[in-house]
Each structure stands twice: as structure tokens, then as C-alpha cells.
Design a binder for these strands. Structure first.
Length: 898
RNA sequence: GCGCGAUUAGCUCAGCGGUAGAGCGCUUGCUUCACACGCAAGAAGUCACAGGUUCGAACCCUGUAUCGCGCACCA
């Protein structure tokens, strides 16, 4: 603790400070949770980033918030577990490794085979999977790294499979041939949540077909997907539609493929909207969800004309087979034109579902998949409705509730190799026949001759167990349910809702009490930041430039609860500047001699400016506790910033200088009181700021040689760190009477506002800032004597050569101003421009008259005076007095100017 | 179509019933013995629009507009 420390440099250089403190915390086990601790538990599980991930600004925001909560909890005496980890990100990771394989070895995963490919993925994971973890450490994240988890860890993976087996046993998991969202690039099914609707500009094509039984009668059909005509098996109209109802039961000839002009029945189905297009629908059961339903109702054949990769197959016929679906669209249009059937091409905008990962239109595809009927949906809704789980901001409750109300079964199988393999075994005969008879749902192989389902589970089917299955028995006993979850609203369905259901199903408890939803970080033009747009600055560059603490503080200060954030590097620069300000304020303190963190103020005679400052500090601290209570982090940052920069640096330190620099013996007790006040406030600020700027505050704490009461959860090697130091006390002025406090506050405020007014006067008259000026003060007296100390402070802050107390009004022709301490005039010995001063005073009079008029109008209003609360009325009366006085003074001044 | 946000100083955003705020940018002075990543002073706003409630509205209510997001629809 008492190591020799060099003097602080004039500018804070974060790089070394940050890495060395991070290492010391880790080496001392500061982040390692102790399940046997007696201290109350506080726990958070990290939203696991993808192993393929690199840190984005979104992660910075999200993890800084978690770190703030974790560090604040440690300071307030909790035993903290912040459990970190990553998820295996099935599609993303497999894609990355496949791409690398193609590039480096010109091979596909099929060339390697399943086992060899998976070995490659693991190899890749070991090599690159830790990147984002390393980045979180650079940010200062105080995670318990000894408990880092991965969704493919052996124990965790086993849990995932057990859950599958269990839910199957409960009848909630089933296999079925259904229409699913198919990604033709990733070659797998997707859940509904992984499909992102995007507006697409295309065409609505109209073509006509002649009714076979009624030559000369043509039906006109509107479609956006003419390439699926070859898969059509009926034409549908609404049975209530007078235009077409009589044609039901008759037929048309399908125009494509050319050589097989099949007859299609005209059917009646109420799903057809008369208003849309022509009111006639082509029915393609194999390639459209709604059409599939119609097909089921009418027993229509299903013709699948597409391959898994989105190209057309042989059933599409010559000229189409092998074409990509979008090439085929153009081709189909050409053919229809040639046949003279195309009647219209209207430009048309519609929503097309895109694959979240591959960013290509998904293809509705009929396939065998595993589905889950969600467990505990009612309980999950109730947990939030009844406030067992609280959402911040609470508007997300509605979104959550709505989703659960309309919940659909979840397609959980993925046609990938990287992931948790589905624990289902098929006997040889079932494989041959394609039936599901005789299959076994269990983790271990039933023996020779059984084949495991080749598919894996949706990554979210593993991460929905994250809140409880990352913990062993002992840890769960202490730390589950977790205290809070911090995440983005974009995964409210993917993760939050599902985790609540899993928690209820498998632990019988909610997984977390509070959920804090962050805002989404956008670029200057309002676009969401993403890898593909390349509009996200690299947080590591920002850390290199501004320091992790600067980055953290900067981003927190502009992140109001649940509101999206338009990112601007200037914001981070401000964070860095604030760090530097703190650094220099501490430097200044060190120059004044040795410091102590918790000096006893009771025996000291505190100057009024000190009482005022401590009162401001306590007020700020109370507001800060309130802000923490409902996760208003940007307010926490704002309170600390405003108090420290404004109240402490700009006013208190500057006002304290004449005392600190005084050589006179009679000032020595005031000097001691000032230094003690500085220590109280600096140590308090460092403690309160620590969760936001951990490295810098810890460095300064150590540098100042501060020590203070450790929190209840500090033991052994944890002792002595600011990280485990309690927040400052809540009431620093318990030994001072209320009268004295309010008198000190009033006189200090008056003094400061007089300083401000006089500085303004100086500037108005263009007095060079170096030039000292003599001021005359006609004291108002209602604040008591203008003390020697106040006079010294006033002189120092206004660069006065002297402040002479006078009685009566200011000398004629002297610029003067009414302040809260009295009328202050600035005799310039004939140097002033009378004309300019008259103009200044006249403008001022106009302003004051306008204000006075406003107050007068209110006070003259009978109903205002009667109905308004007493305090407000008093406030207005006071205002009236003030403006009136001011006006009087100004008028007198104007008169003396001639 | 339904729901949710946003609209306040040139920019980024606070404030959400009692005299319109911050930071940046801008103007003017300052190499003042902690800090130019700084200090001091200043200019700058019909708080999107229209109604309503209230003694009083940026704030509450009802509409409208623009932008964004989610859900549904999507032939």
C-alpha cells in the first residue's frame, strides 16, 4: 500500500494503468464468486456473445452496464457472481469455418465428412473463440472468469440433450412434415424469429388462362412468383365471389412446363381475398405456407420443384431445371410473354422474409423437422404481468405479452453439423422406410445398427438454459435466481422469453428478477450498426485512443434508459476529458499535502463554501441512489459529472485557492478544514465513480493513499481495493445544524452568483482578464456580514485588487450591478464610454421589465393566487421582489449616467 | 391494419405540470502557479402541428404530420 509513487503527469495516460489494474484484480481473486459467502448474493449471467463475435459498441454498452451493477453490488457488501461465456452460434460458426475451408483447402464440409469437419470447427474455436472474451477484459469487465462457460461444454451439452429427451417424454417435442422457413444458403430450416421481413421492390405479374370447359372465358391471375407456376396444382377463387363462383369445379391448363400442360381444378376457398389482385389465386402447395393449407383442405397434390439450394429441379421442366429461383422468375415471365398469356407487369412492393444470418430471401419448404410446443407459457406471461419479473423500461412488457399470446410452435432442428446433435436414434428399417416408427429418444446410442438423427438443435435451444445450467449445485444454491439480466430488446423473444419458460420448467423459479433492456446503438445517420455495413467503429481503437474508462463513461452518459443512441465519437472524447479532469483534480489535491480518505469533520470549523459543497454532495448522492434503484445509468453518470466538474472543480476548488495559498497563520484552521473537505469529496467521488471508471479510480485511490472501510464481502486478498470499498456515508453534515447549513448554502450561492455577475460586467466592459479591478460593494446585509473570507474568495474569483465596502448607492457614472450580496460597482475612473453604458443599462432594463411583467401578470391573477401551492406563490413573490429591486437599481444607474 | 418509440439551441441529447437545460460546435477573452483533454464570458429555442384539461402545459388528454421499430398481412 505504501509503495513509492511518482508524481502524476499532467495528462492521464490510461493504457498502462488499465492493464495493470485489471491484472491485479484478477490475481487477487476479486472477481471470483464464493458460493459459501455469508454476504447477500448478487448475480448476473452475461448474454453470451457468439464465439465468432468481435466486440461491437453494443457489447460495450451492454457489458459496461453489467459491470457497473456488479461493481456497485460488491461495494455495497454483496457477494457477486457475474458469469461469463460464449455461445456456439450454429449457423454463423459453421459458415465461417466452411468459408475458410473453401478458401484454404478448396474443400467443402462434405469432402471432410462430419467428424473431421467438426474437429476443424473445434480447432477454429480454440484459436479464435476467445477473441471477444479478451476484448471484454480490455473493457474492464469484472466477470468471474473461473466460471466461464460455453454452450458446447460437455456438462452443458448433456443438459441440453436431457432437456430434449425430457420435453419429448412430456409430449411437447414432436416430429412432423411441415412448411418451414428454409434458408437456401445455409441449407437449413429456421425458426419464425430468424426471418426478417424486408420491403422488396418487384412486380405483380398478371397472366391469363382459358377455362377448359368454357372456351373464350379467361381467368386472370396475379402473382409475384411466376417461377412457381410449374408447382401449381389448382386455381382458387373465393366461393362468395360472384365473378368466379360459377367456374368452381371447372379447369384450366397449367401453362408451364411447356411439354406437360396439366389440368388444374378451379376450387373455392375462403382464404382467397377478392380485393387482392384479380381475386384469382394460383395454388402452389409446395412453395407457399398459405397454399399448403389450401392444399390440405382440398387434398391437392404437392409438386416440389425446387432443390434445397433454391435452384429448380427436373420437375420444373426443360429450360428451368438448374436455374436459380430468381433467374427462373425472369425466364417464366419470358415464356408467358411468348405464349401471349402475360397481360400486365405492375411495379409492386411487398414484404419478403429474409434469413437473418445469410441475408437472402427464405424459401417456404416442406420438410421433416422437430418442433417444440413451448412449456410454461401461461406461467411465463404471469411472471411478468404480476411483477415477479420487472422489465426496464416497462413498455417491453406489452411486446413480451403479445408474443406469448400468439406463440407458435418452435422449429428446433437445424440441418447443420455444428451444434447439439438431436438425441434421437433410428433403427435401420425406419431409415429405409422413412417412418418414425420404433425410434428411440435418448442420449446414448441404443447399440449396433442404430443411426442418430443427423440434425442439430437451434442454438437458442441451448442458450435458453443459460441462466441455470451454467451453474453447478452449490453456485445455483447461492446465486439463482439471478438478480438482473441486461440485454438488447432485439432478443426479447429469442432469449429472454424462452429463458423465462425454461427457468420455470426446470427450476420452478423465475431465472431473474429484473430485466434491463438497453438501447440500440446507431450511426450518425441513424442506421443500426452492423458488421456488414461496416459502420461500427472498433471499440478497441476507441479504447486505445480514449481509454476503457473514457469509452465506458462516454457511452453511459449518452445512453438514457431504453432509448436508442446515435453514436458520435465526440461523446467518447468527453468521457476521456472527464477522466483527465478527475486525474488533474487529484493531482491538485496531492500538491497540497498528504491526504486521508475519511477525515473526521466533526472537530473542524467548516467554512461556508465547504458546508455548501458537502450539502451538494449529499444531495447528489441521494439522487444517485435513486437513479441506481431503477437503472437510470445515464443519470448516475450525469450526476457525478455535473457535481464533480461544476460544483467541485469550477467553484469549490477555485474558491478554496485563496485559502490554500494563504501564508497567514489565522487561515490555518480553515485550510485544514478545506483539505479535509476535499478528501471527503474526492474519496467519495472515487468510490461512486468506481463502477463507471474502475481503472482510473482505483489508480487514484491508491495514489492518494486512501483507505476506508471495506464492504462486508471483502476478505483476504480482496481487502484494500477500491473495488471492495463501501460507498461514502449518506449524511456528511450530521454534526452541523440545519440553520447553519441553509445559511451557508444561501450565502455561498449568493457569493457565487455575485462572482458570475461581476465577471459578466468585466466582460461587458472588455476589461482584460489579467487586469485587476477595484470593486465597491454596497452590501445588502440580509445575508449577514460580508466576511473577510468571502471577500478574499470574491477577489480571487473576479481578479479584484480590492473590494471596498461602502454604504449608500454606487458613485454616479459607475457601471454597477445588483447581485445577491448587494450592489457592486466597478469604478473605472472616467475610462468608460458613457454612451455604451447607457445602452447596456437600457437593454437590461427592457429585459427586467419583461420578466417583471410576467411575474406581475401571474400575481395579479386572482385564481392563480388562490389555487397555487403556497411554496409556488412564495417563489413568485420572491421573484417579484428581486426583479423590482433590480429594476430600481438599473433606473438609478441610468439616471446617474445622465 | 395493430402496437411501441421519437420529434426541444447548428449537432447529439437531458428535462416530462410551476422563471427552457447540458456537452459539442460557434463568438470574445485567457500559455491565471491541477487540467488547452483546460479557464472565463457570450450569442443561440413560437420545446413538430392543431385542439382540449388546468390558475399555469415542452411535460397530461385527443387528433394530425414526419421519421424509426415491432407484430400481422403479404397472390
Amino acid at each position: 500500500m505504501s509503495e513509492h509513487l511518482p508524481e502524476l503527469s499532467t495528462a492521464y495516460a490510461p493504457a498502462d494503468v488499465e492493464s495493470s489494474w485489471y491484472a491485479r484484480w484478477c490475481d487477487s481473486g476479486c472477481f471470483t464468486a464464493d458460493p459459501t459467502s455469508q454476504a447477500p448474493a448478487y448475480s448476473i449471467v452475461i448474454p453470451p456473445p457468439n464465439v465468432t463475435g468481435i466486440l461491437t459498441l453494443g457489447h460495450v454498452l451492454n457489458n459496461t452496464l453489467q459491470d457497473i451493477l456488479a461493481r456497485r453490488a460488491r461495494q455495497t457488501g454483496h457477494e457477486v457472481l457475474w458469469l461469463p461465456g460464449t455461445d456456439h452460434a450454429g449457423i454463423a460458426t459453421q459458415t465461417v469455418v466452411e468459408r475458410q475451408l473453401r478458401k484454404e483447402e478448396k474443400k467443402t464440409r462434405h469432402d471432410l465428412g462430419r467428424e473431421a469437419f467438426l474437429a476443424k470447427v473445434w480447432e477454429w474455436k480454440e484459436k479464435h473463440g476467445g477473441i471477444i472474451i479478451g476484448q471484454l477484459k480490455k473493457l474492464g469487465a469484472s466477470c468471474d472468469w473461473s466460471r466461464e462457460r460455453f454452450t458446447m461444454d460437455e456438462a452443458y451439452a448433456r443438459k441440453v440433450q436431457e432437456v430434449f429427451v425430457d420435453l419429448h417424454k412430456k409430449g411437447l417435442i414432436y416430429r412432423g412434415k411441415r412448411m418451414v422457413n428454409w434458408c437456401p444458403v445455409s441449407l437449413t430450416a429456421l425458426s419464425d424469429e430468424e426471418v426478417i421481413p424486408k420491403k422488396q421492390k418487384g412486380y405483380l405479374y398478371h397472366f391469363k388462362l382459358e377455362v377448359v370447359e368454357a372456351p373464350g372465358t379467361w381467368l386472370e391471375i396475379a402473382t409475384t412468383r411466376p417461377e412457381t407456376i410449374m408447382g401449381d396444382t389448382a386455381i382458387a377463387v373465393n366461393p362468395m365471389d360472384q365473378r368466379y363462383a360459377h367456374l368452381i369445379g371447372q379447369h384450366v391448363r397449367r401453362p408451364l412446363p411447356l411439354n406437360v400442360e396439366a389440368l388444374l381444378p378451379i376450387i373455392g376457398d375462403e382464404a382467397v381475398d377478392f380485393e387482392f389482385g384479380t381475386g384469382v389465386l394460383k395454388v402452389t402447395p409446395a412453395h407457399d405456407k398459405a397454399d399448403y393449407e389450401i392444399g390440405l383442405r382440398h387434398n391437392l397434390p404437392v409438386i416440389d420443384i425446387m432443390n434445397a439450394n433454391g435452384t429448380l429441379n427436373d420437375l420444373a421442366g426443360e429450360g428451368f431445371a438448374g436455374l436459380d429461383r430468381f433467374e427462373a422468375r425472369m425466364e417464366a415471365v419470358e415464356r408467358l410473354k411468348e405464349l401471349g398469356l402475360l397481360t400486365k407487369e405492375d411495379p409492386y412492393e411487398n414484404n419478403v422474409g429474409f434469413s437473418e444470418r445469410a441475408d437472402v430471401p427464405v424459401e417456404p419448404r416442406l420438410s421433416e423437422q422437430w418442433f417444440l410446443k413451448y412449456p410454461k407459457t401461461l406461467e411465463a406471461r404471469d411472471a411478468v404481468r404480476k411483477g415477479l419479473i420487472r422489465f426496464f423500461p416497462d413498455r417491453w412488457e406489452k411486446v413480451y405479452d403479445h408474443w406469448l399470446e400468439n406463440i407458435q410452435d418452435w422449429c428446433i432442428s437445424r440441418q447443420l453439423w455444428w451444434g447439439h446433435r438431436i438425441p434421437v436414434w433410428y433403427p435401420a428399417e425406419s431409415l429405409a422406410t422413412g417412418t418414425t416408427e420404433g425410434i428411440r429418444v435418448q442420449i446414448e446410442s441404443p447399440g449396433e445398427g442404430w443411426t442418430q438423427d443427423p440434425d442439430v438443435l437451434d442454438t437458442w435451444f441451448s442458450s435458453w438454459l443459460w441462466a441455470h445450467d451454467t451453474m453447478d449445485e452449490a453456485v445455483r444454491g447461492k446465486f439463482y435466481p439471478t438478480s438482473v439480466l441486461v440485454t438488447g430488446p432485439d432478443i426479447i423473444f429469442f432469449w429472454v422469453a424462452r429463458m423465462i419458460m425454461a427457468g420455470l420448467e426446470y427450476t420452478g423459479e423465475i431465472p431473474f428478477r429484473d430485466v434491463y433492456f438497453t438501447g440500440i446503438i446507431r450511426d450518425k445517420t441513424g442506421r443500426k450498426m452492423s458488421k456488414s455495413l461496416g459502420n461500427s467503429p472498433d471499440p478497441l481503437d476507441l479504447i486505445a485512443k480514449y481509454g476503457a474508462d473514457g469509452l465506458r463513461f462516454g457511452i453511459i452518459r449518452v445512453a438514457p434508459q431504453g432509448q436508442d443512441i446515435k453514436f458520435d465519437e465526440k461523446q467518447i472524447e468527453e468521457g476521456r476529458n472527464f477522466a483527465n479532469k478527475l486525474w488533474n483534480a487529484v493531482r491538485f489535491r496531492e500538491m497540497q499535502g498528504p491526504a486521508t480518505a475519511s477525515p473526521d469533520l466533526t472537530g473542524l470549523e467548516l467554512p461556508e463554501i465547504a458546508i455548501h459543497l458537502l450539502e451538494r454532495f449529499d444531495t447528489m448522492h441521494a439522487a444517485l441512489r435513486g437513479a441506481y434503484a431503477d437503472y437510470r445509468f445515464h443519470e448516475v453518470a450525469g450526476l457525478l459529472y455535473d457535481f464533480f466538474w461544476g460544483d467541485y472543480c469550477d467553484w469549490f476548488v477555485e474558491a478554496a485557492k485563496p485559502i490554500l495559498y494563504s501564508q497567514s497563520d489565522e487561515d490555518s484552521s480553515a485550510k485544514a478544514a478545506i483539505l479535509a473537505t476535499m478528501d471527503v469529496v474526492l474519496s467519495g467521488i472515487l468510490r461512486l465513480l468506481h463502477p463507471l471508471m474502475p481503472h482510473l479510480t482505483e489508480e487514484l485511490w491508491r495514489h492518494l493513499g486512501y483507505t476506508a472501510a471495506a464492504s462486508a464481502s471483502a476478505w483476504g486478498a480482496r481487502n484494500g481495493f477500491l473495488l471492495y470499498t463501501q460507498p461514502p456515508e449518506e449524511n456528511h453534515l450530521s454534526g452541523v445544524s440545519h440553520e447553519r447549513i441553509s445559511a451557508a448554502a444561501a450565502s455561498t450561492k449568493a457569493l457565487y452568483s455575485a462572482v458570475h455577475a461581476v465577471r459578466n460586467l468585466r466582460a461587458e466592459f472588455k476589461i482584460p482578464s489579467k487586469q485587476q479591478v477595484r470593486f465597491l460593494l454596497a452590501s445588502k446585509g440580509d445575508l449577514g456580514e460580508f466576511t473577510k473570507l468571502q471577500s478574499a474568495i470574491f477577489a480571487a474569483l473576479t481578479r479584484a485588487s480590492a473590494v471596498e465596502l461602502i454604504t449608500g448607492s454606487a458613485p454616479a457614472g459607475t457601471p454597477s450591478i445588483l447581485t445577491d450580496i448587494g450592489t457592486i460597482s466597478m469604478p473605472l475612473e472616467g475610462l468608460i464610454d458613457l454612451e455604451a453604458e447607457r445602452a447596456r443599462v437600457t437593454t437590461e432594463i427592457a429585459k427586467v421589465e419583461a420578466e417583471l411583467e410576467k411575474v406581475n401578470a401571474k400575481l395579479a391573477d386572482q385564481s392563480f393566487v388562490e389555487k397555487v401551492p403556497a411554496a409556488v406563490l412564495e417563489d413568485h413573490r420572491l421573484r417579484h421582489t428581486k426583479w423590482s429591486e433590480k429594476l430600481e437599481t438599473l433606473k438609478t444607474t441610468l439616471k446617474t449616467l445622465g
